[in-house]
Amino acid sequence: MTNVANAQPRSRFVPGQPDMWAFVLFEALVFTAYFIVYIIRRTQSPDLFLESQAHLDLRVGVFNTLVLLASSWSVARCVQAARERSLGAALTNAFLTMLFGFVFLVSKVLEWVTKIEEGFGFTTNEFFSFYYFLTAIHFLHLLIGFVVLAIGAYQLASPARRSQEIIETCATYWHTIDFLWVLIFALLYVMR
């Protein structure tokens, strides 16, 4: 474990714990499998999927993506600030990341509520089953991300337990939530 106080400039390094990278690659493969099934089913009923997709608001998808990108930016700043022992700045960026995550969470819930009020539920058709499945499983990862960020903030709050490796591990998990959403956005909102 690397303490922030003892952090030295590194040439080539694995950001965070290698175990987290194994998990990230595993998650990436699991989500790729979901996406493959989605595309195969989509090509079998293109008209149904296109007609259903037209009920989603592309602008909401873009907004959510921009918010998560901003959260990735702030968590990257958090890591860098911790590395430079600017612990106040690191903690501020960790909370900023939580704020962006919370905005995404509220936006996603509002979108679900709107769709359900419009009559598009999980069982409406296959497109909406995939829509709710993919966004809900991503949402679950986001909720876990809040716990992970809280662990990072807890690490930053006290010099006694501060570990740069754990902070980088927490950031790696959060970035994973971001890049998985980038793909979900393209597949649910943009593709034809």
């Binding site: 590194r10 040439s11 080539r12 390094f13 694995v14 950001p15 990108l69 990735s72 930016w73 968590v75 990257a76 890591v79 950031a171 790696t172 970035h175 971001d178 890049f179 980038v182």
Partner: peptide, 13 residues
């Protein structure tokens, strides 16, 4: 995102 935010550009090959 992987290269820049996740700093894989500095990671082992």
């Amino acid at each position: 995102i992987i290269r820049e935010f996740m700093e894989v550009r500095h990671a082992p090959v």
